[in-house]
């Protein structure tokens, strides 16, 4: 059983969001980078749990990014997994990135590909579906639970107003979210082991970028909160009805 876990670097949730170069570039000054939480807490940790149950499971990670993503990859390797592959490209186009991951997936012959449900920065939720299409594999998105019986996976996925349970024979692509696994913190042994785990760097294959970011905008600032006295809830109801027209 070979699992490929897709890992991305994102700014920490608490980072200040600002832009430079005429609002065309994300301002990285002072930004704390983390492993995209959906990739780390849910997909990677679930893969590690599968390996803990069955020692024959092999976990590879793949990221598409520049050399500055390597500290993040080492951190992911400290949690577990056997080796990592970095495709050397800074592209932000989902299709281009998916094409790189699909190439790694085809070469490695993986039984299972995990992605996070989205990244915290571009919120695309696209990589899983694209990789599935490019590798001609079934895809289950927004998974909250994943179990394996031989080569059949039973996956619980989010639907509007509830959840759905589905079965699929591997190979398959699954996008993961909360519920799949619990957050872990790397221990010292893992951190030491991660230093010597293989981190291969490959150059990207030719692929088209289908989209391009023109520029960024910050949302207009809120006008400020209108406080209503706790003894006068009728006033809040009036404001919501007449001014905000929300009820």
């Amino acid at each position: 059983m070979k699992i490929l876990v897709c890992v991305s670097k994102t700014p920490d949730t608490t980072s200040k969001v600002a832009f430079t170069d005429g609002n065309t570039k994300f301002d990285e000054a002072g930004v704390q980078w983390i492993i995209n939480p959906y990739d780390e807490w849910y997909s990677l940790v679930r893969a590690i749990e599968l390996k803990e149950k069955d020692a024959s499971v092999v976990i590879h990670m793949v990221t598409v990014g520049g050399a500055d993503t390597e500290p993040i990859i080492r951190k992911a390797l400290a949690l577990g997994g056997d080796e990592a592959i970095r495709v050397n490209s800074d592209s932000t186009d989902s299709y281009y990135i998916a094409a790189q991951i699909a190439e790694i997936a085809k070469q490695g012959g993986y039984d299972l590909i995990f992605t996070g449900k989205e990244t915290l920065d571009y919120n695309g939720s696209s990589i899983g579906g694209m990789v599935a299409e490019l590798t001609d594999a079934p895809y289950i998105s927004l998974a909250t639970k994943f179990d394996l019986e031989g080569t059949t996976a039973t996956v619980t996925r989010e639907i509007e107003g509830g959840e759905e349970v589905a079965e699929v024979a591997l190979p398959a692509v699954v996008s993961c979210q909360k519920g799949m696994a619990e957050q872990r913190i790397p221990n010292m042994r893992g951190i030491m082991a991660a230093r010597t785990k293989p981190l291969k760097v490959t150059e990207p294959v030719a692929a088209d970028a289908l989209t391009a970011i023109v520029n960024f905008e910050l949302p207009p600032a809120k006008a400020g909160v209108k406080l209503v006295d706790a003894e006068n809830v009728e006033e809040l109801v009036r404001l919501l009805h007449e001014e905000a027209k929300a009820i």
């Binding site: 299709y95 990589i127 998105s141 927004l142």
Partner: peptide, 22 residues
């Protein structure tokens, strides 16, 4: 939505048609 998220990306790769989500 959950269905749109699952399907749109797949169609994008199939048709090689650029996708903007959300």
């Amino acid at each position: 939505t959950p269905t749109g998220k699952a399907v749109a990306a797949r169609v994008s790769a199939k048709l090689k048609a650029g996708l903007v989500t959300g």
